[in-house]
Measured scan of single mutants.
Amino acid sequence: PQECLLLEPGLNEIMANSLDYNERLWAWESWRSEVGKQLRPLYEEYVVLKNEMARANHYEDYGDYWRGDYEVNGVDGYDYSRGQLIEDVEHTFEEIKPLYEHLHAYVRAKLMNAYPSYISPIGCLPAHLLGDMWGRFWTNLYSLTVPFGQKPNIDVTDAMVDQAWDAQRIFKEAEKFFVSVGLPNMTQGFWENSMLTDPGNVQKAVCHPTAWDLGKGDFRILMCTKVTMDDFLTAHHEMGHIQYDMAYAAQPFLLRNGANEGFHEAVGEIMSLSAATPKHLKSIGLLSPDFQEDNETEINFLLKQALTIVGTLPFTYMLEKWRWMVFKGEIPKDQWMKKWWEMKREIVGVVEPVPHDETYCDPASLFHVSNDYSFIRYYTRTLYQFQFQEALCQAAKHEGPLHKCDISNSTEAGQKLFNMLRLGKSEPWTLALENVVGAKNMNVRPLLNYFEPLFTWLKDQNKNSFVGWSTDWSPYADQSIKVRISLKSALGDKAYEWNDNEMYLFRSSVAY
């Protein structure tokens, strides 16, 4: 590609939709070469300064400071330590791993069909083939991996386009969902002041979706909304933040926050679980009234959910574990990228498509890292959202599997949720969690119950496949010279610098 592309739109479109291996590689590498390399010296300084700040406030390091958001002291029976968070994340991840490994094996087999000769049947997945710029969410792999393609499509993007949905309609439908469970409408100022579409040439905007509580009843969302099912669900997520903000607005200023950061992320995700169900999509006209649910549509639905929800958990866990180790000084600065990709291979089963030396800073190419967000919130929120969903479905008197529950129109479920939201940070999160779900610790069981039918199906699908991955295989081993030459021509001086062995191999191949 010759034109100058922004991340959004532009590069993200390539990473969402392109099936051209080399075009995807160009976009993936260009973003890291342009952005990651510029941020490397800044990120090194950032780590030093943030650690100084944390230690001045009596924390061991900046990662310890972040984990302090979960700490509860002096509340008998509800205490929770920063170290306990690490333990809980690690042991819940071990419980999730078998499901993830089977999802990984299934996706690898489907990617082998889409990119023959580029995928190893026992290796890691190349990082640039996973549906977005970071491989964070695998949602866009659904069209390549759908188990029963002859069934009606449960990705309702086409239906939204056919019905001329726009950003306003998407957010109005999200608002209807919250109102149906007894939560309030958005304010008039929300509709007047939010930026729900890309302003285009009028001004440059950071398009990463964010929710804003500017105080004095001024709530806004910034999002360059596209007419897709993914953005339909994202709208519910962002509006969930606003509902939380509005619910605790009466609290004293210092207590106007989520019980912990994971709670804030979980609220909209609960609504997304219901909004994505075929039952709900039928009720708002995005699935045909004669759409029939059966075992095959159930597996299609659960796989689509797993690509988004299960596929991202190792990504989140590994990223934050790397940062915690960096802040603690356990990874020397001259080994940041080496350790990043070692951990990516070992924990996530994902491999870099071309080698990256220590001039890169791949983590900082992600919005949340370069903008100083702690990231473990996206792991804890996933466990909380299924715990909350299970409890709210019980309040809504849902009968049947958890993945079929739609809590819309249940004011009982809405009241149970609101009673927790309005507390803000005035009560320990362990107590707030217990008030809703009857337990005071994160628990992976509801998530595993939700995906149980899919897990059973995946194990059957993978019975003749290798489950797990070898960390030795690299996608650039066989194609390295071709890849390096093409990237050198595209990126010039910003391309990865060849070492002596690679230059010798190149000259030998040319001479041959």
Rank of each mutant, 00 (worst) to 15 (best):
P252M: 04
I309S: 10
L233Y: 10
M246S: 06
Y373T: 06
T139W: 08
R220N: 00
S374K: 08
N193D: 04
A249V: 05
M246N: 00
L233E: 08
R381W: 07
R377P: 12
G189K: 01
N257T: 07
V206P: 01
A249I: 15
R381V: 07
H368L: 08
Q188I: 10
Q305P: 03
W212P: 00
H241F: 13
H208K: 13
Y378Q: 07
F219P: 00
M246K: 05
H368S: 12
D245R: 04
E269C: 08
N140E: 09
T234R: 10
P252F: 06
G215I: 01
S272K: 08
F219W: 03
L233M: 10
Y373H: 12
F137M: 08
R381M: 12
Q305G: 09
Y373F: 11
R381I: 04
R220P: 00
T187V: 08
M246Q: 04
H237I: 11
A249Y: 03
F375Y: 11
R220Y: 00
E265L: 08
D213M: 02
W212E: 02
R256F: 01
L233A: 05
M229R: 09
F367S: 09
H208Y: 08
I309E: 04
T187W: 02
G217S: 02
H264C: 06
F367L: 09
S272C: 11
Q251Y: 00
H241I: 08
L214Y: 04
R220W: 02
N193G: 02
L233T: 05
R381T: 07
L233N: 07
D213G: 06
L214Q: 08
N193A: 05
H241W: 08
R136A: 08
F137G: 07
P209L: 03
Q188L: 08
E269F: 07
H208I: 11
K216D: 00
T210K: 13
E269L: 11
G215S: 14
K304H: 11
Y378A: 08
T308Q: 13
F253T: 03
N153G: 11
S374C: 08
N140V: 10
F219G: 00
W212C: 04
P209A: 11
A250K: 04
D245L: 05
P209W: 01
G217Q: 00
H368F: 08
P209H: 08
R377V: 09
R220S: 01
F219C: 03
W212K: 04
M229P: 05
F367D: 08
F137W: 09
V206A: 07
G189W: 01
L233H: 06
F253C: 03
Q305I: 02
Y378L: 10
Q305M: 05
F375E: 10
K216V: 00
T234H: 11
M229G: 09
P209V: 05
H237V: 12
T187C: 06
D213N: 10
L233G: 06
G189E: 04
D218K: 00
Q305R: 09
A250I: 14
K304Q: 13
N140I: 05
T139K: 11
R256S: 08
W212T: 03
G215K: 15
A250P: 12
D372Q: 03
L214K: 00
H208T: 12
D218P: 00
G215N: 14
K304W: 09
N140F: 11
H264D: 08
L214M: 14
P252A: 10
L214V: 05
D230F: 12
W212L: 02
H241Y: 08
F253W: 02
H237G: 11
D372W: 01
V206G: 03
I309Q: 13
Q251P: 00
P209C: 05
P209N: 06
E261N: 11
G189M: 02
S374V: 11
F375W: 12
R381D: 02
P209K: 05
D230G: 11
T234P: 00
R381H: 10
L233V: 07
P252I: 00
D372N: 07
F253Y: 04
F253G: 01
E265I: 06
M246G: 03
P252W: 05
K216M: 02
F219E: 00
R256N: 05
P209S: 09
F219H: 05
D245Y: 07
S374D: 14
Q188S: 07
T210R: 07
S272F: 07
M246P: 00
E265F: 12
N193L: 15
G217V: 01
T187N: 08
H368I: 08
R220D: 00
N140M: 11
D230S: 12
E192W: 04
T210S: 09
E269T: 11
W212Q: 03
I309T: 13
H208E: 11
A249E: 05
D230H: 06
Q305V: 04
D218R: 00
D245F: 13
F301M: 08
H237S: 12
M246V: 12
Q188K: 10
I309M: 10
R136K: 12
F375Q: 07
W212Y: 05
P209Q: 08
N257W: 13
E192D: 13
F367K: 12
F375P: 05
I309G: 03
E265C: 07
I309N: 08
E269I: 08
P252E: 14
Y378S: 10
F367P: 11
L214C: 09
G217P: 01
Q251M: 05
E261P: 08
N140K: 14
D372S: 07
H368R: 07
D245W: 02
S272W: 09
E192M: 07
K216W: 00
F375T: 11
T308C: 07
F137Y: 09
F301P: 00
T210C: 06
T234Y: 05
K216N: 02
Y378C: 06
H241S: 12
A250D: 09
T234F: 10
F137R: 11
A250W: 14
D218W: 00
D230P: 08
F219M: 03
H241A: 13
A250V: 12
H237M: 12
H237K: 13
H237Y: 10
N140S: 10
P252N: 12
I309H: 10
R381F: 05
T308Y: 09
L214I: 04
Q251A: 06
R220M: 04
R381Y: 04
T139N: 10
Q305S: 06
D245T: 12
R377H: 10
